[in-house]
Design a protein around this nucleic acid. Sequence first.
RNA 1: GUGUCCGUAGUUCAAUGGUAGAACGUCACCUUGUGGAGGUGAUCACGAGGGUUCGAUUCCCUUCGGACACCCCA
Length: 435
Amino acid sequence: MALSTQPVKGARDFYPEDMRLQKYIYAKWREVCERYGYEEYDAPILEPTELYLSKGNQEIINDQTYTFEDRGGRSMTLRTEMTPTVSRMIAGKRQELAYPARWYSIPQFWRYERMQRGRGREFYQLNADIFGIADLAADLEIIDMADAVMQAFGAKRETYAIKVNSRKLVDSFLTGNLGLDQTQADTARRLIDRMRKMDQPAFVAQLDAIISPSQRENGVGSRLLQFLETPTLNEIPEELLGNESVAELKLLLEKLGNNGVTNAQFDPTLMRGFDYYTDIAFEVFDTDPENNRSMFGGGRYDGLVSMFGVEPIPAVGFAMGDITLKLFLEAHGLMPALMPETDIYIVLIGEVADKAQAPIKQLREMGLNVAVDQTGRKPESQIKTAVKKGIGYVLFIGERELEESKFMLKNLHSKEEEAHSLERIVSIIKDYRKQ
RNA sequence: GUGUCCGUAGUUCAAUGGUAGAACGUCACCUUGUGGAGGUGAUCACGAGGGUUCGAUUCCCUUCGGACACCCCA
């Protein structure tokens, strides 16, 4: 039986045209991160399984990771997210780093999942984190940067919304104001996370199942519902007016607005998992009703670095995946027309391969990306290859050109052609690149 | 893990219980220094395995792969 030409299930091959888009995305990601002063880092794709276990969810490890034993009997896991890894790196050099540390990375991740739209088993994510700032300023910067990434791809603010919530606020409301115990609060958070996907009666029924009869008599259920339906922070229930998280959220949204990020809004149902986030959390949604999905998000995770047995370091970060981003770009007509990297395709005419080496080399030394056909086929076929590759120019090299040191350059879009010196060719191509 | 749908040339599709066609593509030639048109020719497929059957690409089962939803989403 023949070997399969397909990539492994759930993973993608990046053919050159796919890679071109990928490079475009990475370039934008890098550009924005570096504009905010973030430095790029990377780490191994393999981590010891304990790194993920210590977060406490055995089921995730068993069912949703690529985990195996290496030849030394160690349990290894292909990384499924970057936050534990970057926290490990920060913890490892905590004494010598200059804080605040602003780091970003574009790693590949593997999750053993059932595939569906916008989710494969292999994907890339931009991860950006800031360490060492406990103040709201860090949350502001991260959300502002997440927005800047969307802007860099040409997204209009009405096409996406940034929903913001505070884990601290929700926790203090559930356990403080409503008097739920920790187990109840955890269960309630999971339920709230799904609220937008359920109908109201089903939600209320499940909520009633969580709270005790005496709590129900105290109006716990209806108070929670009232909170969850808060449209804006100005309409927050009275019992939360003094909560400092409310003031922080207000300040955050106000400052975001001042930065021009006008599409950020409070959403009390936003939970964003329930693992390591400790305070502000946010998620960016596609507002298109056809694709009204959460695209990416982030938040504050002040406790994670201390998992390595060192003093905690405050941290805020976000991550956005390449697959969901591509869906967004497609849905909103933001896919760029990408040019091939090759500037010129050399068509050799006659037996001139040897003599053509010198001018070709000169073109490359002057900074052009030059591909030579090399097949010895007739010019027609060579040109067709260049057209198919999407290359902008063809340069003919035959006896005539070599004698005159002027080479016939043909623009494949305009079909115009003219003989030029190598220097002139270089300047024409460099002008073309700028378009 | 559950459910629904789907697998035919490189691609997009068709037909058929009696071993498959087209379009586009690719390659060659018409046209040995010039592409997108046209002509001629060639190339290339029933995902895999098993079952029913005289005979299966077609029906059934399994498996692999794909799409979507649920679950989950770190």
